[in-house]
Design a protein around this nucleic acid. Structure first.
Lengths: 226, 226
DNA sequence: TCAAAAGTGTTAGGCTTACACCCATGC
DNA sequence: GCATGGGTGTAAGCCTAACACTTTTGA
Protein backbone atom coordinates (compact mmCIF):
# COMPACT_ATOMS: atom_id res chain seq x y z
CA UNK A 1 0.00 0.00 0.00
CA UNK A 2 1.46 3.39 -0.95
CA UNK A 3 3.03 5.31 1.90
CA UNK A 4 0.66 7.96 3.20
CA UNK A 5 -2.12 6.70 0.94
CA UNK A 6 -3.62 3.92 3.00
CA UNK A 7 -7.19 4.20 1.67
CA UNK A 8 -7.45 2.05 -1.44
CA UNK A 9 -10.36 1.10 -3.67
CA UNK A 10 -10.99 -1.04 -6.74
CA UNK A 11 -12.47 1.94 -8.57
CA UNK A 12 -11.54 5.62 -8.40
CA UNK A 13 -13.49 7.58 -5.78
CA UNK A 14 -14.03 11.32 -5.74
CA UNK A 15 -13.51 13.36 -2.61
CA UNK A 16 -16.73 14.72 -1.13
CA UNK A 17 -17.04 18.10 0.57
CA UNK A 18 -19.72 20.43 1.83
CA UNK A 19 -19.75 24.20 1.32
CA UNK A 20 -22.05 26.49 3.23
CA UNK A 21 -23.56 29.79 2.17
CA UNK A 22 -24.37 31.55 5.43
CA UNK A 23 -26.44 34.70 5.06
CA UNK A 24 -27.03 37.51 7.44
CA UNK A 25 -28.35 41.04 7.29
CA UNK A 26 -25.87 43.64 8.42
CA UNK A 27 -25.59 47.33 7.73
CA UNK A 28 -28.86 47.15 5.82
CA UNK A 29 -27.55 44.72 3.25
CA UNK A 30 -27.63 40.98 2.68
CA UNK A 31 -24.22 39.60 3.52
CA UNK A 32 -22.42 36.27 3.16
CA UNK A 33 -19.81 34.72 5.40
CA UNK A 34 -16.48 33.98 3.72
CA UNK A 35 -13.18 32.65 4.96
CA UNK A 36 -9.80 33.46 3.58
CA UNK A 37 -7.88 30.43 2.37
CA UNK A 38 -4.55 29.78 3.99
CA UNK A 39 -3.50 26.92 1.71
CA UNK A 40 -3.27 26.36 -2.02
CA UNK A 41 -5.08 26.20 -4.30
CA UNK A 42 -6.56 29.68 -4.39
CA UNK A 43 -4.39 30.63 -1.43
CA UNK A 44 -5.31 34.00 0.10
CA UNK A 45 -8.56 34.07 -1.84
CA UNK A 46 -11.92 34.18 -0.14
CA UNK A 47 -14.11 31.10 -0.21
CA UNK A 48 -17.19 29.61 1.38
CA UNK A 49 -16.72 27.77 4.65
CA UNK A 50 -16.74 24.01 4.17
CA UNK A 51 -14.59 20.93 4.06
CA UNK A 52 -14.24 17.22 3.58
CA UNK A 53 -16.82 14.66 4.63
CA UNK A 54 -15.87 12.25 7.37
CA UNK A 55 -16.88 8.61 7.04
CA UNK A 56 -19.02 8.59 10.17
CA UNK A 57 -21.19 11.64 9.46
CA UNK A 58 -23.78 12.59 6.89
CA UNK A 59 -23.52 15.67 4.72
CA UNK A 60 -25.58 17.89 6.98
CA UNK A 61 -23.50 16.93 9.99
CA UNK A 62 -20.39 17.64 7.97
CA UNK A 63 -21.66 21.10 7.05
CA UNK A 64 -22.49 21.86 10.67
CA UNK A 65 -19.12 20.63 11.85
CA UNK A 66 -17.19 22.65 9.29
CA UNK A 67 -19.17 25.75 10.16
CA UNK A 68 -18.34 25.25 13.80
CA UNK A 69 -14.67 24.57 13.16
CA UNK A 70 -14.12 27.44 10.78
CA UNK A 71 -16.36 30.10 12.23
CA UNK A 72 -17.43 29.06 15.72
CA UNK A 73 -21.09 29.03 14.64
CA UNK A 74 -23.16 26.15 15.94
CA UNK A 75 -26.60 24.65 15.69
CA UNK A 76 -28.05 26.41 12.66
CA UNK A 77 -30.77 24.99 10.49
CA UNK A 78 -29.06 24.06 7.23
CA UNK A 79 -30.89 23.39 4.02
CA UNK A 80 -29.37 21.43 1.19
CA UNK A 81 -29.00 23.58 -1.89
CA UNK A 82 -27.42 21.62 -4.73
CA UNK A 83 -24.57 19.22 -5.36
CA UNK A 84 -21.84 20.52 -7.67
CA UNK A 85 -19.83 18.05 -9.65
CA UNK A 86 -17.98 19.52 -12.62
CA UNK A 87 -14.95 17.24 -13.08
CA UNK A 88 -12.50 20.16 -13.03
CA UNK A 89 -14.03 22.26 -10.28
CA UNK A 90 -11.09 21.56 -7.96
CA UNK A 91 -7.57 21.47 -9.44
CA UNK A 92 -6.23 19.09 -6.79
CA UNK A 93 -8.44 16.09 -7.36
CA UNK A 94 -11.95 15.17 -8.27
CA UNK A 95 -14.23 16.79 -5.68
CA UNK A 96 -18.01 16.61 -5.40
CA UNK A 97 -19.45 19.33 -3.21
CA UNK A 98 -22.86 19.23 -1.57
CA UNK A 99 -23.81 22.80 -0.75
CA UNK A 100 -26.03 24.11 2.03
CA UNK A 101 -27.44 27.45 2.92
CA UNK A 102 -28.36 28.93 6.26
CA UNK A 103 -29.39 32.19 7.86
CA UNK A 104 -28.37 33.78 11.11
CA UNK A 105 -28.64 37.08 12.90
CA UNK A 106 -25.44 39.02 12.63
CA UNK A 107 -25.38 40.82 15.94
CA UNK A 108 -25.14 37.75 18.13
CA UNK A 109 -22.34 36.37 16.03
CA UNK A 110 -18.70 37.23 15.81
CA UNK A 111 -17.18 35.06 13.10
CA UNK A 112 -13.83 34.16 14.45
CA UNK A 113 -10.79 32.48 13.12
CA UNK A 114 -10.88 28.71 13.44
CA UNK A 115 -8.11 26.59 14.87
CA UNK A 116 -5.95 27.15 11.82
CA UNK A 117 -6.21 30.91 12.17
CA UNK A 118 -8.01 31.59 8.94
CA UNK A 119 -9.85 34.86 8.75
CA UNK A 120 -13.63 34.89 8.51
CA UNK A 121 -15.65 37.94 7.53
CA UNK A 122 -19.02 39.11 6.25
CA UNK A 123 -19.27 40.52 2.74
CA UNK A 124 -22.27 42.22 1.16
CA UNK A 125 -23.62 39.98 -1.55
CA UNK A 126 -23.57 42.85 -4.02
CA UNK A 127 -19.87 43.41 -3.44
CA UNK A 128 -18.22 40.04 -3.09
CA UNK A 129 -14.52 39.61 -3.82
CA UNK A 130 -13.42 37.05 -6.40
CA UNK A 131 -14.15 33.67 -4.91
CA UNK A 132 -12.20 30.42 -5.06
CA UNK A 133 -13.42 27.39 -7.05
CA UNK A 134 -17.00 27.68 -8.32
CA UNK A 135 -18.12 29.41 -5.15
CA UNK A 136 -19.48 32.49 -6.91
CA UNK A 137 -21.91 30.23 -8.73
CA UNK A 138 -22.92 28.58 -5.46
CA UNK A 139 -23.60 31.94 -3.80
CA UNK A 140 -25.74 33.08 -6.70
CA UNK A 141 -27.85 29.93 -6.57
CA UNK A 142 -28.28 30.34 -2.82
CA UNK A 143 -29.41 33.93 -3.24
CA UNK A 144 -32.08 32.89 -5.73
CA UNK A 145 -33.30 30.09 -3.49
CA UNK A 146 -33.44 32.38 -0.48
CA UNK A 147 -35.60 34.93 -2.29
CA UNK A 148 -37.87 32.22 -3.66
CA UNK A 149 -38.44 30.69 -0.25
CA UNK A 150 -39.20 33.89 1.61
CA UNK A 151 -42.94 33.78 1.21
CA UNK A 152 -43.37 30.03 1.34
CA UNK A 153 -41.50 29.35 4.52
CA UNK A 154 -40.53 30.82 7.82
CA UNK A 155 -36.84 31.14 7.09
CA UNK A 156 -36.82 34.92 7.32
CA UNK A 157 -37.25 34.74 11.08
CA UNK A 158 -33.86 33.12 11.40
CA UNK A 159 -32.33 36.47 10.58
CA UNK A 160 -33.93 38.12 13.58
CA UNK A 161 -33.60 37.77 17.34
CA UNK A 162 -36.23 35.83 19.21
CA UNK A 163 -38.42 38.87 19.59
CA UNK A 164 -38.61 41.56 16.97
CA UNK A 165 -40.82 44.30 15.62
CA UNK A 166 -42.80 44.14 12.40
CA UNK A 167 -40.67 46.95 11.02
CA UNK A 168 -37.56 44.87 11.58
CA UNK A 169 -39.19 41.94 9.82
CA UNK A 170 -40.24 44.14 6.94
CA UNK A 171 -36.68 45.42 6.62
CA UNK A 172 -35.47 41.81 6.30
CA UNK A 173 -37.91 41.14 3.47
CA UNK A 174 -37.04 44.37 1.72
CA UNK A 175 -33.33 43.65 1.93
CA UNK A 176 -33.62 40.13 0.58
CA UNK A 177 -36.08 41.00 -2.16
CA UNK A 178 -34.33 44.29 -2.85
CA UNK A 179 -37.59 46.19 -3.13
CA UNK A 180 -39.77 48.41 -0.98
CA UNK A 181 -42.94 46.89 0.46
CA UNK A 182 -46.14 48.62 1.54
CA UNK A 183 -46.24 48.82 5.32
CA UNK A 184 -49.96 48.21 5.79
CA UNK A 185 -50.11 45.37 3.31
CA UNK A 186 -46.99 43.75 4.72
CA UNK A 187 -48.39 43.78 8.26
CA UNK A 188 -51.78 42.53 7.13
CA UNK A 189 -50.15 39.70 5.20
CA UNK A 190 -47.70 38.53 7.82
CA UNK A 191 -50.28 38.65 10.61
CA UNK A 192 -52.77 36.72 8.48
CA UNK A 193 -50.31 33.81 8.34
CA UNK A 194 -50.92 33.27 12.06
CA UNK A 195 -47.33 32.42 12.80
CA UNK A 196 -46.60 35.37 15.07
CA UNK A 197 -47.75 36.23 18.57
CA UNK A 198 -47.35 39.48 20.42
CA UNK A 199 -44.95 39.26 23.34
CA UNK A 200 -46.75 42.03 25.22
CA UNK A 201 -43.49 43.95 25.41
CA UNK A 202 -42.47 47.00 23.46
CA UNK A 203 -39.26 47.98 21.78
CA UNK A 204 -38.26 51.43 23.04
CA UNK A 205 -35.50 52.66 20.82
CA UNK A 206 -35.05 56.20 19.58
CA UNK A 207 -37.33 59.13 19.98
CA UNK A 208 -40.51 57.75 18.58
CA UNK A 209 -43.44 55.61 19.51
CA UNK A 210 -42.46 52.20 20.96
CA UNK A 211 -43.12 49.21 18.71
CA UNK A 212 -44.93 46.03 19.72
CA UNK A 213 -42.62 43.05 19.69
CA UNK A 214 -43.53 39.64 18.33
CA UNK A 215 -42.20 36.13 18.43
CA UNK A 216 -42.75 33.11 16.16
CA UNK A 217 -45.43 30.83 17.59
CA UNK A 218 -43.66 27.63 16.60
CA UNK A 219 -40.00 28.54 16.29
CA UNK A 220 -38.71 24.99 16.03
CA UNK A 221 -39.85 24.11 12.56
CA UNK A 222 -39.06 25.73 9.26
CA UNK A 223 -42.50 25.52 7.81
CA UNK A 224 -43.52 25.43 4.22
CA UNK A 225 -46.58 27.62 3.97
CA UNK A 226 -49.52 26.35 1.92
CA UNK B 1 -0.36 -0.99 -3.72
CA UNK B 2 -2.96 -3.60 -2.84
CA UNK B 3 -3.77 -6.00 -5.63
CA UNK B 4 -7.03 -5.01 -7.33
CA UNK B 5 -7.21 -1.82 -5.28
CA UNK B 6 -5.05 0.52 -7.30
CA UNK B 7 -6.86 3.77 -6.36
CA UNK B 8 -5.34 5.08 -3.16
CA UNK B 9 -5.85 8.28 -1.19
CA UNK B 10 -4.48 9.94 1.93
CA UNK B 11 -7.97 10.19 3.41
CA UNK B 12 -10.94 7.87 3.06
CA UNK B 13 -13.21 8.68 0.14
CA UNK B 14 -16.84 7.66 -0.22
CA UNK B 15 -18.17 6.15 -3.41
CA UNK B 16 -20.53 8.44 -5.31
CA UNK B 17 -23.55 7.25 -7.25
CA UNK B 18 -26.60 8.67 -8.93
CA UNK B 19 -30.11 7.24 -8.70
CA UNK B 20 -32.92 8.28 -11.00
CA UNK B 21 -36.64 8.40 -10.32
CA UNK B 22 -38.22 8.21 -13.75
CA UNK B 23 -41.96 8.86 -13.82
CA UNK B 24 -44.50 8.11 -16.45
CA UNK B 25 -48.26 7.89 -16.68
CA UNK B 26 -49.54 4.51 -17.73
CA UNK B 27 -52.85 2.81 -17.27
CA UNK B 28 -54.18 5.99 -15.71
CA UNK B 29 -51.73 5.95 -12.86
CA UNK B 30 -48.43 7.57 -12.03
CA UNK B 31 -45.71 4.95 -12.41
CA UNK B 32 -42.01 4.68 -11.64
CA UNK B 33 -39.33 2.76 -13.48
CA UNK B 34 -37.52 0.14 -11.42
CA UNK B 35 -34.87 -2.42 -12.21
CA UNK B 36 -34.40 -5.75 -10.55
CA UNK B 37 -31.00 -6.17 -8.94
CA UNK B 38 -28.93 -9.09 -10.14
CA UNK B 39 -26.13 -8.71 -7.58
CA UNK B 40 -25.93 -8.46 -3.82
CA UNK B 41 -26.74 -6.58 -1.74
CA UNK B 42 -30.52 -6.64 -2.05
CA UNK B 43 -30.21 -9.19 -4.82
CA UNK B 44 -33.49 -9.81 -6.66
CA UNK B 45 -35.04 -6.76 -5.08
CA UNK B 46 -36.30 -3.84 -7.13
CA UNK B 47 -34.35 -0.61 -7.07
CA UNK B 48 -34.04 2.71 -8.86
CA UNK B 49 -31.83 2.80 -11.93
CA UNK B 50 -28.46 4.34 -11.19
CA UNK B 51 -24.81 3.62 -10.64
CA UNK B 52 -21.33 4.84 -9.89
CA UNK B 53 -19.93 8.16 -11.01
CA UNK B 54 -17.05 8.07 -13.48
CA UNK B 55 -14.16 10.46 -12.99
CA UNK B 56 -14.64 12.22 -16.32
CA UNK B 57 -18.36 13.04 -16.06
CA UNK B 58 -20.52 15.19 -13.84
CA UNK B 59 -23.46 13.86 -11.87
CA UNK B 60 -26.07 14.69 -14.48
CA UNK B 61 -24.06 12.97 -17.20
CA UNK B 62 -23.70 9.98 -14.91
CA UNK B 63 -27.44 9.82 -14.37
CA UNK B 64 -28.09 10.03 -18.10
CA UNK B 65 -25.51 7.36 -18.84
CA UNK B 66 -26.86 4.97 -16.24
CA UNK B 67 -30.39 5.47 -17.50
CA UNK B 68 -29.22 4.67 -21.01
CA UNK B 69 -27.22 1.62 -19.95
CA UNK B 70 -29.86 0.14 -17.72
CA UNK B 71 -33.03 1.02 -19.55
CA UNK B 72 -32.14 2.18 -23.07
CA UNK B 73 -33.67 5.59 -22.38
CA UNK B 74 -31.71 8.55 -23.70
CA UNK B 75 -31.73 12.31 -23.68
CA UNK B 76 -34.23 13.13 -20.95
CA UNK B 77 -34.23 16.34 -18.99
CA UNK B 78 -33.06 15.38 -15.51
CA UNK B 79 -33.51 17.55 -12.47
CA UNK B 80 -31.39 17.15 -9.38
CA UNK B 81 -33.54 16.13 -6.43
CA UNK B 82 -31.43 15.68 -3.31
CA UNK B 83 -28.18 14.08 -2.22
CA UNK B 84 -28.52 11.22 0.26
CA UNK B 85 -25.68 10.52 2.60
CA UNK B 86 -26.61 8.43 5.64
CA UNK B 87 -23.37 6.61 6.58
CA UNK B 88 -25.07 3.21 6.59
CA UNK B 89 -27.28 3.57 3.53
CA UNK B 90 -25.25 0.99 1.59
CA UNK B 91 -23.95 -2.07 3.42
CA UNK B 92 -20.95 -2.51 1.11
CA UNK B 93 -19.15 0.74 1.62
CA UNK B 94 -19.81 4.39 2.25
CA UNK B 95 -21.91 5.63 -0.67
CA UNK B 96 -23.21 9.14 -1.33
CA UNK B 97 -26.03 9.22 -3.84
CA UNK B 98 -27.10 12.27 -5.81
CA UNK B 99 -30.65 11.64 -6.97
CA UNK B 100 -32.44 12.95 -10.04
CA UNK B 101 -35.95 12.83 -11.30
CA UNK B 102 -37.33 12.87 -14.81
CA UNK B 103 -40.54 12.37 -16.73
CA UNK B 104 -41.26 10.57 -19.96
CA UNK B 105 -44.19 9.39 -21.99
CA UNK B 106 -44.70 5.71 -21.56
CA UNK B 107 -45.93 4.67 -24.96
CA UNK B 108 -42.81 5.58 -26.87
CA UNK B 109 -40.69 3.70 -24.39
CA UNK B 110 -40.07 0.04 -23.86
CA UNK B 111 -37.79 -0.31 -20.87
CA UNK B 112 -35.51 -3.11 -21.78
CA UNK B 113 -32.89 -5.09 -20.03
CA UNK B 114 -29.47 -3.51 -20.15
CA UNK B 115 -26.28 -5.25 -21.11
CA UNK B 116 -26.22 -7.22 -17.89
CA UNK B 117 -29.72 -8.55 -18.50
CA UNK B 118 -31.42 -7.00 -15.55
CA UNK B 119 -35.15 -6.61 -15.79
CA UNK B 120 -36.70 -3.15 -15.95
CA UNK B 121 -40.40 -2.47 -15.39
CA UNK B 122 -42.93 0.21 -14.55
CA UNK B 123 -44.69 0.11 -11.18
CA UNK B 124 -47.59 2.28 -10.05
CA UNK B 125 -46.36 4.59 -7.34
CA UNK B 126 -49.20 3.58 -5.09
CA UNK B 127 -48.21 -0.08 -5.31
CA UNK B 128 -44.43 -0.26 -5.25
CA UNK B 129 -42.66 -3.40 -4.10
CA UNK B 130 -40.17 -3.20 -1.26
CA UNK B 131 -37.20 -1.27 -2.57
CA UNK B 132 -33.49 -1.75 -2.01
CA UNK B 133 -31.41 0.72 0.03
CA UNK B 134 -33.22 3.96 0.91
CA UNK B 135 -34.91 4.06 -2.47
CA UNK B 136 -38.43 4.19 -1.07
CA UNK B 137 -37.52 7.45 0.64
CA UNK B 138 -36.08 8.81 -2.60
CA UNK B 139 -39.23 7.96 -4.54
CA UNK B 140 -41.42 9.65 -1.96
CA UNK B 141 -39.36 12.83 -2.09
CA UNK B 142 -39.51 12.80 -5.89
CA UNK B 143 -43.28 12.42 -5.81
CA UNK B 144 -43.64 15.45 -3.57
CA UNK B 145 -41.34 17.53 -5.72
CA UNK B 146 -43.16 16.54 -8.87
CA UNK B 147 -46.53 17.61 -7.48
CA UNK B 148 -45.09 20.86 -6.17
CA UNK B 149 -43.56 21.78 -9.51
CA UNK B 150 -46.59 21.05 -11.65
CA UNK B 151 -48.02 24.53 -11.60
CA UNK B 152 -44.76 26.44 -11.52
CA UNK B 153 -43.08 24.82 -14.46
CA UNK B 154 -43.69 23.12 -17.75
CA UNK B 155 -42.59 19.67 -16.65
CA UNK B 156 -46.02 18.12 -17.13
CA UNK B 157 -45.66 18.32 -20.91
CA UNK B 158 -42.80 15.85 -20.78
CA UNK B 159 -45.35 13.17 -20.04
CA UNK B 160 -47.18 13.79 -23.28
CA UNK B 161 -46.37 13.40 -26.96
CA UNK B 162 -45.45 16.46 -28.96
CA UNK B 163 -49.05 17.21 -29.76
CA UNK B 164 -51.87 16.49 -27.36
CA UNK B 165 -55.37 17.48 -26.40
CA UNK B 166 -56.34 19.54 -23.38
CA UNK B 167 -58.18 16.56 -21.99
CA UNK B 168 -55.00 14.51 -22.12
CA UNK B 169 -53.15 17.30 -20.34
CA UNK B 170 -55.85 17.55 -17.70
CA UNK B 171 -55.65 13.81 -17.12
CA UNK B 172 -51.90 14.16 -16.45
CA UNK B 173 -52.54 16.83 -13.84
CA UNK B 174 -55.33 14.84 -12.23
CA UNK B 175 -53.17 11.74 -12.03
CA UNK B 176 -50.20 13.50 -10.48
CA UNK B 177 -52.25 15.57 -8.06
CA UNK B 178 -54.63 12.69 -7.42
CA UNK B 179 -57.69 14.90 -7.58
CA UNK B 180 -60.34 15.87 -10.08
CA UNK B 181 -60.07 19.28 -11.70
CA UNK B 182 -62.81 21.44 -13.19
CA UNK B 183 -62.65 21.25 -16.96
CA UNK B 184 -63.53 24.85 -17.72
CA UNK B 185 -61.21 26.30 -15.09
CA UNK B 186 -58.39 24.01 -16.12
CA UNK B 187 -58.62 25.06 -19.75
CA UNK B 188 -58.91 28.71 -18.87
CA UNK B 189 -55.88 28.48 -16.60
CA UNK B 190 -53.59 26.55 -18.91
CA UNK B 191 -54.44 28.68 -21.94
CA UNK B 192 -53.86 31.86 -19.92
CA UNK B 193 -50.26 30.81 -19.38
CA UNK B 194 -49.62 31.34 -23.10
CA UNK B 195 -47.35 28.37 -23.43
CA UNK B 196 -49.53 26.37 -25.83
CA UNK B 197 -50.43 26.87 -29.47
CA UNK B 198 -53.07 25.07 -31.49
CA UNK B 199 -51.64 22.79 -34.12
CA UNK B 200 -54.69 23.21 -36.35
CA UNK B 201 -55.17 19.45 -36.35
CA UNK B 202 -57.73 17.42 -34.51
CA UNK B 203 -57.54 14.21 -32.60
CA UNK B 204 -60.19 11.83 -33.96
CA UNK B 205 -60.42 8.95 -31.59
CA UNK B 206 -63.58 7.19 -30.58
CA UNK B 207 -67.14 8.06 -31.36
CA UNK B 208 -67.28 11.59 -30.15
CA UNK B 209 -66.40 15.09 -31.20
CA UNK B 210 -62.74 15.49 -32.32
CA UNK B 211 -60.47 17.46 -30.00
CA UNK B 212 -58.16 20.29 -30.97
CA UNK B 213 -54.54 19.37 -30.52
CA UNK B 214 -51.91 21.65 -29.05
CA UNK B 215 -48.17 21.82 -28.79
CA UNK B 216 -45.88 23.68 -26.40
CA UNK B 217 -44.70 26.96 -27.93
CA UNK B 218 -41.16 26.68 -26.57
CA UNK B 219 -40.57 23.00 -25.92
CA UNK B 220 -36.83 23.26 -25.33
CA UNK B 221 -36.83 24.93 -21.95
CA UNK B 222 -38.31 23.74 -18.70
CA UNK B 223 -39.63 27.05 -17.58
CA UNK B 224 -40.26 28.24 -14.10
CA UNK B 225 -43.48 30.19 -14.27
CA UNK B 226 -43.63 33.53 -12.44
C1' DT C 1 -80.67 8.43 -32.25
C1' DC C 2 -77.62 7.50 -28.79
C1' DA C 3 -73.39 7.45 -26.31
C1' DA C 4 -69.22 9.69 -25.47
C1' DA C 5 -66.05 13.19 -24.93
C1' DA C 6 -65.21 18.25 -26.58
C1' DG C 7 -66.08 22.69 -25.91
C1' DT C 8 -67.79 26.98 -23.85
C1' DG C 9 -69.26 31.95 -19.80
C1' DT C 10 -70.86 33.93 -15.89
C1' DT C 11 -71.06 35.05 -11.17
C1' DA C 12 -69.76 35.50 -6.27
C1' DG C 13 -66.40 35.77 -3.08
C1' DG C 14 -61.79 36.24 -1.67
C1' DC C 15 -57.41 38.13 -2.19
C1' DT C 16 -54.25 41.74 -3.63
C1' DT C 17 -52.98 46.28 -4.22
C1' DA C 18 -52.88 51.13 -3.74
C1' DC C 19 -53.11 54.77 -0.85
C1' DA C 20 -52.64 58.93 3.78
C1' DC C 21 -53.06 60.22 8.15
C1' DC C 22 -52.81 60.09 13.38
C1' DC C 23 -50.01 58.22 17.54
C1' DA C 24 -46.50 57.89 21.10
C1' DT C 25 -42.14 58.93 22.33
C1' DG C 26 -37.38 61.48 23.27
C1' DC C 27 -35.12 65.48 22.82
C1' DG D 1 -43.27 71.35 19.68
C1' DC D 2 -40.99 68.78 16.46
C1' DA D 3 -38.81 64.96 14.45
C1' DT D 4 -39.07 60.06 14.12
C1' DG D 5 -40.75 55.76 13.17
C1' DG D 6 -45.25 52.98 14.82
C1' DG D 7 -49.63 51.98 13.79
C1' DT D 8 -54.15 51.73 11.32
C1' DG D 9 -58.79 50.92 7.13
C1' DT D 10 -61.03 51.06 2.85
C1' DA D 11 -62.14 50.57 -1.89
C1' DA D 12 -61.17 48.79 -6.71
C1' DG D 13 -59.74 45.39 -9.39
C1' DC D 14 -58.11 41.03 -10.14
C1' DC D 15 -58.06 36.17 -9.59
C1' DT D 16 -60.27 31.82 -8.18
C1' DA D 17 -63.79 28.58 -7.77
C1' DA D 18 -68.21 26.85 -8.58
C1' DC D 19 -71.37 25.45 -11.77
C1' DA D 20 -74.51 22.92 -16.74
C1' DC D 21 -75.51 22.70 -21.18
C1' DT D 22 -74.58 22.38 -26.35
C1' DT D 23 -71.60 20.37 -30.10
C1' DT D 24 -69.63 16.90 -32.93
C1' DT D 25 -68.65 12.54 -34.04
C1' DG D 26 -68.95 7.10 -34.80
C1' DA D 27 -71.61 3.31 -34.29
Amino acid sequence: MPVNQPYCYTHPHPAVTTDIVLFTIREESLQVLLIQRTNPPFRQMWALPGGFLNMDENLEQCANRELLEETGIDGLYLEQLYTFSAPDRDPRERVISATYFALTQSDTLHPKAGSDAQEAAWFPISGLPDLAFDHAEIVELARQRLAAKLNYSTIAFQLLPETFTLSQLQAVYETILDEKLDKRNFRKGVLARNILMETGDYSRTGNHRPAKTYRVINPTRVEIIK
